[in-house]
Design a protein around this nucleic acid. Structure first.
Lengths: 349, 349
DNA sequence: TTGTATGCGTTATCAG
DNA sequence: CTGATAACGCATACAA
């Protein structure tokens, strides 16, 4: 156990290669390659010998050589976005974490890159694909008329989006490409139901400005649930995603008679809670539900809609890896999965 | 402007290569290579022709081929850690964002990988280095007797750490390897000074349990500043990094007579603020300073020590890229830079 | 200044 | 079941 972590770097001199172990075992290089890539093809006496030599010298195939030959890199691209808010902006960081682990399990690694906007992102795709031969891309924050997915699809580059193809919701188009999403509308609807079960009748929503796919979806869920329950569904304020917006919108909503509030983000919820506390409206403060179940919400005790990010990451990788490894395969049947978030109830300290 | 983003994928058939453009321009492949890698070596009539052809067909060198030849990948490794807290855990996410941008500027890309613990991280180094030929690694969260840096140094693999080589603080050892760090002690000291300037005499500290490099450093800075100012320096509580710890420690500190509190993280500060508010101690609440200047602190209005992460990222990349591209170069003179954080004063809403 | 030859480590094809 | 041969795209020494 002198070097449990570094299998065989110290002992040998030069880096082991197919050739070197072929020479050492007296078989052809091709046979060694077969032992590595398709062991069933080589008969037992030989295979054992080669395998043990491979272990002995700690041979690892060269990704570069393999990539040169196969035109595949085992790399997946993920664009880093500037953290907008940081409170719930962390949702994408959680996603990246989860994707990294899942990718590793499946033999892929993730290459992160920076891009200022969607056009820069497309340029980066082009570049990374041409030079580094990335096998596919992981898209986030899709939106109406997203040019990125169009471009990738046109190029025939495998990718999967976290987010629906907004704006092309007829059945035909929704299968335009692989995607996975979380049913935000279901989340806000559940939030409304939870609040109603608490006895609230006049429930308000603090949403994002109209026009964003995810934002409109969450607003729709809110209205749907209100209609179902026979509640007034127009207690809606829309504002950009920030603490301040949460404060102001919340105040406006209680001014309009709201007894409870659903927020489409924890930033907004945090602001709403703060303002309600400041106004002495502890009744409303106890009935605020945020979105994303961020650490802050957990700490403060704000109820929040929890998105199954880990599950989404796994699904994204399943889709993408399948697309990469079976390029010719027909699209999978049925619509892609829409994962369901869960409301976490808490009590503000 | 039909394809501003995809220079030349549509027009040509096969992917352009050195050979193909050599053939097209009637020069040798080597000359084309020179035009790409060392334009000064080729004379004007030729160079212009080749360059325009390169642009025309949108040629991009193959990273795989280049890597196979040069044994360099242009890839830097960064380990993703499980988000401990999320409130200030985001500091590493900020770092990754910044590193990604800086790396891009210098022609490198970042490969993120998952590892459960430091041993797994070392195993990952070994693996990524052997297969993907990563050029170097970016370490975070260094600690006492860090085995990762020892291993990397022993292997002669370029790397740079975000964090000092804790525990080997004699001058000789502090130059063991490249690192960059932020002077946490300076941050807490500044916080103490700011609070003292506000008139506070009995200032408390909520720190992390003894034994972590960064934690002890911040505690030291606190004591140093107290001593300087002639203040009592033993109003210290140490607890794990969480909202709850912040609440409890803060309560204990005011029980011991504290009029103001410095926290080594925003999670702790958030807890402290909440508890002070609950206890009606608005005087203390207004004199709490956190650490990391997270979005939450900004939103709530908690003062916080702001770490110059972007600057650190730039410095890390300077160091690492230099080490990669000039392997033989002597270590730079003088001690590595210790960046100074800044106190951001705010008022809790 | 330009061109020629060779090899980086691997896998695919096809023959034995 | 195994092995010889070729090619992936590039860069580096060296020759012209």
């Amino acid at each position: 156990m002198t070097q449990s972590t570094a299998p065989a770097t110290a002992a040998s001199g030069a880096k082991p290669t197919l050739n070197s172990i072929a020479a050492a075992t007296g078989v052809s290089r091709q046979t060694v390659s077969n032992v590595v890539n398709d062991p069933s093809r080589v008969a037992e006496p030989t295979r054992g010998i080669v395998e043990s030599e491979i272990r002995r010298v700690g041979y690892r195939p060269s990704a570069a050589a393999r990539q040169l030959r196969t035109q595949r890199s085992g790399l997946l691209g993920f664009r880093m976005r500037a953290v907008a808010d940081g409170i719930n902006g962390s949702i994408l960081d959680r996603l990246l974490h989860a994707l990294t682990e899942r990718a590793h399990e499946r033999g892929y690694a993730i290459l992160v890159f920076a891009a200022a906007d969607d056009d820069a992102e497309i340029a980066a795709y082009d570049d990374l694909r041409a030079t580094n031969a990335l096998d596919g891309f992981l898209l986030t924050s899709t939106n109406h008329g997203d040019r990125r997915s169009d471009w990738l699809a046109a190029q025939g580059i495998p990718f999967v989006a976290f987010g629906r193809p907004w704006g092309r919701d007829d059945a035909a188009h929704s299968r335009d490409h692989d995607w996975i999403d979380i049913d935000g509308g279901h989340g806000t609807a559940e939030a409304v139901r939870a609040l109603a079960a608490d006895g609230a009748r006049r429930i308000g929503l603090i949403g994002w400005p109209e026009g964003s796919g995810a934002g409109d979806d969450r607003a729709d869920g809110f209205r749907r649930a209100c209609a179902e329950l026979g509640l007034e569904g127009d207690l809606i304020e829309r504002a950009e995603d920030s603490f301040e917006s949460g404060q102001e919108s919340a105040e406006r909503l209680v001014g309009r008679g709201a007894e409870a509030i659903v927020c489409v983000s924890d930033s907004l919820a945090l602001g709403a809670v703060a303002r309600m506390r400041a106004l002495g409206r502890h009744d409303v403060m106890a009935r605020i539900i945020g979105f994303d179940d961020t650490p802050v919400a957990r700490a403060i005790g704000i109820s929040s809609v929890d998105q199954p990010i880990e599950q989404a990451a796994r699904a994204m990788l399943d889709l993408l890896v399948h697309r990469i490894e079976h390029p010719q395969a027909a699209r999978t049947d049925g619509p892609p999965a829409l994962l369901l978030p869960t409301v976490r109830r808490r009590t503000v300290a």
